[in-house]
Simulated scan of single mutants.
Amino acid sequence: MDKDYITELISSKLRLIRTESRYTQEKMANVLGISKKTLVQIEKGRSTAGWAHVVAVCALFRNSEVLQSALGDEPLEVIETVAHRSIDRPKGKTLGGRIWWREIERKGEFRLQQNLISYHYRILDSYDDLWFSSFEKKDALARLDELLNENEDR
């Protein structure tokens, strides 16, 4: 997944996200800071939203079932991973990956999961806190080993 793919994907789902939220075109355009004419063009597939507007949609409508099913659970995590190509930060509560994730490997208190939609990887601890996220499996496996070693050294 990359910015272009996500921009196309979210642009194609914008009408569904808007109707799911029961917003008029006028209200949705206002929320996103674009003109109604621009929104209509995006909804009709004549143009695509810009990256900044896609990020805004993912932030403002992160609980949208349409958005979650398009990106696989947590839209902001996918957006952040794409924007930075990986996330490596301690802590950040998740829902634990019971629906959109499959477990790849478990080591100590950490588990590596892969998203069933976006295919990115993440590492969670036993409290479902996010420790790492990347589209690269080798990077995720290396970080899993590092976290395990850091945890054993304590």
Rank of each mutant, 00 (worst) to 15 (best):
R15F: 05
L16W: 08
I17K: 02
I17H: 00
I17M: 01
R18G: 03
R18K: 15
T19Y: 04
E20K: 00
S21E: 13
R22S: 14
T24Q: 11
Q25H: 08
Q25E: 09
Q25A: 10
K27R: 14
M28W: 00
M28E: 02
A29E: 08
N30P: 01
V31A: 04
L32N: 06
G33H: 07
I34Q: 08
K36N: 11
K36Q: 15
K37C: 07
T38R: 13
L39P: 07
L39C: 10
V40C: 07
Q41M: 10
I42C: 08
E43A: 08
R46H: 07
S47R: 14
S47H: 06
T48G: 02
W51Q: 09
A52T: 13
A52Q: 15
H53P: 02
H53W: 06
V54S: 04
V54F: 05
V54E: 03
V55F: 00
A56K: 15
V57H: 05
C58I: 06
A59T: 14
L60C: 09
F61A: 04
N63F: 03
N63T: 03
S64P: 03
S64L: 09
V66C: 03
V66I: 15
Q68K: 15
S69E: 03
A70H: 06
G72N: 11
E74P: 00
E74A: 13
E74H: 13
E74C: 11
E74D: 14
L76S: 06
I79H: 06
I79C: 00
E80W: 06
E80G: 02
V82E: 10
V82K: 09
A83T: 13
S86M: 12
S86R: 15
I87V: 05
R89E: 12
R89K: 15
R89C: 05
P90C: 02
P90A: 10
K91Y: 08
K91I: 05
G92L: 12
G92V: 04
T94M: 09
